[in-house]
Design a protein around this nucleic acid. Sequence first.
DNA 1: GATGGATAGATGACATGTCAATAACTATGA
DNA 2: TCATAGTTATTGACATGTCATCTATCCATC
Lengths: 165, 165
Amino acid sequence: MTSRWLDATEERAWRGYRRLLTLLESRLAHDLAEDSELSMADYTVLSNLAEAEDRRWRVSGLAERMQWSQSRLSHQITRMERRGLVAREQVDEDGRGAVVVLTKPGLRAIAAATPGHMAAVRKHMIDLLDPDQLKVLGDVADAVVDHLTAVEDSSEGGRQTPSTD
Amino acid sequence: MTSRWLDATEERAWRGYRRLLTLLESRLAHDLAEDSELSMADYTVLSNLAEAEDRRWRVSGLAERMQWSQSRLSHQITRMERRGLVAREQVDEDGRGAVVVLTKPGLRAIAAATPGHMAAVRKHMIDLLDPDQLKVLGDVADAVVDHLTAVEDSSEGGRQTPSTD
DNA sequence: GATGGATAGATGACATGTCAATAACTATGA
DNA sequence: TCATAGTTATTGACATGTCATCTATCCATC
């Protein structure tokens, strides 16, 4: 799939992105697991809950915010609930709804894991880049995210809702 | 995990990267599956094999090239072998070794899938960016990849070998 | 040429994600 | 107000990835 499809600059960017992805995800997941009992998925759920003033999110809202499918989130929550990191509650306004609540152990877990995780994010990514690069990276992400979000909302095929993390 | 750990520029870059990752991986996987019976993992393995002049790779070499763990590749190959996309062969020089070979159906599959996949890559990412952005993205990827590769080789803990794709 | 440690791959158990189907509600309009 | 359509969340079956372990083989050295 070499230079018949992408020119040199494009190919370097694309292959670079793929490789960065592979290595960085793996490394962050590994580092996180080393000093915290948490997977990246656990971490993301917990940190989103911790950021909410009332430490809780409606399932659908959290899925939307994280760009996860509801199914994925539901499975994840089931597993985390088993470990006592979160709890489910009913919603008054809507009998179908469910709310995920951060538990004390969950809060402790995310609080304990965050410093190390953010240090890893710095060490393996952020601190390697200068301000200009960070800005461009932000621009690039915005461009792609806006595009995909728009595509998603409009007609267009399939996508039930995102995936990887 | 907001602005206590990262400044505004850093946070925008980091959150943007996470979101891009989630949306783009999901979209590409979905688009690919739509018109090809192939997962992203299948695609990557097939395209790496197709790029080799003799359409074959030593398992360890392919794992190294793709930055996958041997275990992951072994499982993947087992599944793909079942579907007839690749085949395993013995290595003469080394009785422990194994070689993965691209089969005719495998070649047909990757040939059929590539145009659509690369079009998706363009549509959802490459064509959204200008040359400068592509260059910076390449630089960013190099910086992170070089760092992670170096860390991996040197002392440092854990990492058995990468993961996500 | 036997022995002990390294290497290459495969495999089982288990965590995670996807899709499709289902259940339980809510909302709408005849 | 009741049938129907849409929403919300859960679930089961199955694909995929991880880690730890096992087997076979290689190789350095005694």
